[in-house]
Amino acid sequence: MIQEVLFTELFMMVSNTRQFLRRQIKNRIELLLCLVCCSLISSCGQKDKKEHQEPSGVPEEKVVVKVDIPAEIMSSGKAVYDQYCLVCHQADGSGVPGLNAPLIESDYVQGDKEPYLTILLKGSLDGPSLNNGAYANNMPGFVQLKDQELADLASYVRNSFDNTGELITPEEVAEIRNKKD
């Protein structure tokens, strides 16, 4: 019985919308209550949708060059990244939760050149000082790469994955390389 009334009611609500609104506008309290109920119904549906929603597809690799880095440097830097860094830090710089630090919008990458170049050259077997060492894997040093390769790599990473940072030169890499511990 209740269901019958309910469905008839809903049917008439839809087919007589204009009439319904005209009548109901006179009684704002009922309209308000009705709207609250409707919003509860829709929010209930949304919660359901959210719980079962699948995350959107693979994020695009973002290369936002705000600093003017020559294309050939970006390209050779990417080649170094793909060969030595990508496997741990991933193609989109997102890292691996708990294991390898992400490089996206990274303070470390965009910050002072010296600590950044130091970790690229010498690694950090005690764990990068990121998030209190929240990343378990060791960061190897890449001292065997040439100054130019490391400079291109650093310039590339500083201008990829939503990072921005000025160009790094081979001379700056050499300076950190030759610095005594």
Partner: peptide
């Protein structure tokens, strides 16, 4: 019921509430 404004209003509120409860029950 429709002709009777007051009865209609209560009926409407009741039915909205019923729809809300039914729609949320599953989750």
């Amino acid at each position: 019921a429709f002709q009777n404004q007051k009865t209609f209003s209560y009926l409407l509120m009741f039915s909205c509430l019923a729809v809300f409860l039914l729609s949320c029950k599953e989750n």
